[in-house]
Every structure is written in C-alpha cells, then in structure tokens.
C-alpha cells in the first residue's frame, strides 16, 4: 500500500499549483536556450582552437626575385630555415601546388612557369616556437627577396574574436542559470505563501523545518528536472536538424555539437534540478525561520 503512494512529505502540500507548473515551463524554455548557448560556446571554442592551432603551426616565406636569382635565393632561404631553431621542416611548393592554389582565381590553364610568380616556401613550426623577428633579419641578409609571413597579424584578432564569442556563450549560460534560480525562488516563495496555513498545521503537529522544506523542494526539483529535460531534448533535436551546408557554411553551420560534445547538453537537466533544489531549499528555510 505505501509503495503505491507518492512520498509522504510530498503529499502534505496540496497538489501542484500555478507556481510549480510555471517552474516546469520556464525550466523547459531556459534549458532550450541553454543548449544553444552551449552550442555557441563549444563552436566558438572549436573555431578558436582551429585558428590558433592550424595557423600557428605554419608560416610562409614568399620569395620575389628576378628569374635568374630565383633558384639561388630559394636555396638560400631553405638553408637559412634548416639552421633556424624552432623550424621543424621547410619545403618549397612545387609548380603544381602553386597552380592548385591559384586555380580558384585564374582557372586551370594558368601557365605558372611563364609568369613572374613569387616562390612559396612553407615551413612548419616546432614545439619550441619560432622567433619570427630574428628569422626576418636573417632572411633579409641571406635572401633580400624573401618575406616571412607568419599569419599572426591576421590570425590574432580572429582568435581573440572567437575567444570572446566563447566567453559570451559561457556568460549566457551563467545568466540562464541565475535567471532559473531567481525564477524558482520567486515561485517557491509564492507557493510557500499560498500554503502558509498548511505550514502552520505541520508546525503545530511537530514537523521539523527540513520535513516541511523537503515537501516543497522535492516538488520544485522534480518539475524543474522534467521541464529542463523536455527543453534540452527539443534543443538537441533542433541542433541535430540544423541544415548541413558542408565546408562552405563556415561558422554558422559550425554551430552545433560534434562527437562527444553531444554529451554536454545532457548536463543541463541535472544542473537545472540542482539549481531548483538549492533555490527552493534556501527560500523555504528562510521563510520557516520567520515562523514559530
């Protein structure tokens, strides 16, 4: 018989009222938003990592020299790079590779060998890092036509922007958590006020504060969990159904979860429940301390 009944401390409070139902609804909405904020943070993080990682590893030396000196200057550049600390490897791009790079702009029939194109030398940085200024000075001495382009100049603001975007995502998540906490505190206070008589009766028959608080805490925690689970499921579904545009989409379609990142939004419902638990408990105990 007792197994069929919901828990006792739950039953002493009248069946779900308006505040509890609104809690469920708001938790669902907030969880939905939280999934997007999370996706934003993770996508921005991926973007920042990709830009700083892939681009930091490589640099390019561009050699513009008269036809006759091209080979010797290229040799000189490669010699310099071989003896520069922090350069893991360096190689000159072949004519075919250069043609492939230019193809999108000039078409496939470009006679690369007959144009006065600069030679490109790609270098890969070692883990110890590259002193770009020192390398520039050495190159200027050995091969006057060589220019080092280490990508940092245009990479840095992009990485900074992506990092800022990631920060916004986390701040948004924090704000969503705070909004849920204040909303549930308000709802709990409303429920406690509406049940003032019930609480009075419970105190009279010898209920301890924790017993009374538990009745409210359980209810709000469960509703917040249910609401957040629904909102999270909808949010994840929306992310999964995001139209795929492949490589060309860039950042916009990068907004989503990859691989194990899909586990992240699953933390939203338990977190919402935790916030509801703490907020309701604090509100209930604060209110009860005011009674005899």
């Amino acid at each position: 018989m007792p197994a069929l009944r919901p828990d006792r401390s739950d039953r002493v409070v009248p069946p779900a009222g308006m505040p509890v139902r609104l809690t469920q609804l708001t938790s669902a909405a907030m969880a939905f938003l939280a999934v997007f904020a999370l996706a934003l943070s993770l996508a921005a993080g991926r973007l920042a990592d990709r830009w700083s990682d892939a681009l930091a590893r490589t640099a390019t030396v561009r050699i513009s020299a008269p036809q006759g000196q091209m080979t010797t200057q290229t040799e000189a550049v490669l010699d310099v790079l071989r003896t520069t600390p922090g350069v893991a490897s360096a190689r000159a791009l072949s004519a075919d590779e250069q043609r492939a790079l230019l193809e999108p702009w000039f078409g496939p029939d470009l006679p690369v060998d007959r144009l006065p194109l600069p030679r490109l030398v790609e270098l890969v940085e070692g883990p110890e890092g590259l002193d770009a200024e020192a390398l520039r000075l050495r190159l200027a001495g050995e091969a006057p036509g060589a220019v080092l382009d280490d990508h940092t100049r245009w990479r840095r603001p992009l990485v900074a922007a992506a990092d800022r975007l990631r920060l916004f995502g986390w701040v948004a998540l924090g704000l969503i958590g705070a909004a849920v906490a204040s909303m549930i505190t308000l709802a709990a206070n409303a429920a406690l006020a509406a049940n003032a008589r019930v609480i009075e009766v419970l105190r009279l028959v010898g209920a301890r504060d924790v017993f009374i608080a538990r009745a409210f805490v359980r209810r709000f925690t469960r509703r917040a969990l249910e609401g957040a689970a629904g909102g999270t499921a909808l949010g994840m579904l929306a992310m999964a159904l995001m139209p795929e545009t492949g490589e060309a989409g860039g950042f916009l379609t990068g907004l989503g979860f990859r691989g194990w990142h899909w586990l992240w939004p699953l933390a939203v419902p338990p977190l919402a429940a935790l916030v509801a638990f703490a907020a309701t408990r604090a509100a209930a105990l604060r209110m009860l301390r005011g009674l005899t």
Binding site: R11, E200, V201, V205, R208
Partner: peptide
C-alpha cells in the same frame, strides 16, 4: 527550532477553529 518540533510531538493541541490539510482525508 527542531527542539520545539520534538516538544510538540509530546503535546497535543486542540484549537477552537482547528485547521487541517484540506486535501487529505480525515484519517490521513
């Protein structure tokens, strides 16, 4: 406050206008 709660379990109180939990049966 918990001492007060425990004390009240040893004292029965009947008021003139006694209050109940209106959503629970008399037995409950």
């Amino acid at each position: 406050r918990d001492d007060v709660a425990h004390t009240r379990r040893r004292i029965g109180v009947v008021h003139q206008d006694c209050q109940f939990l209106d959503h629970l049966s008399v037995a409950e």
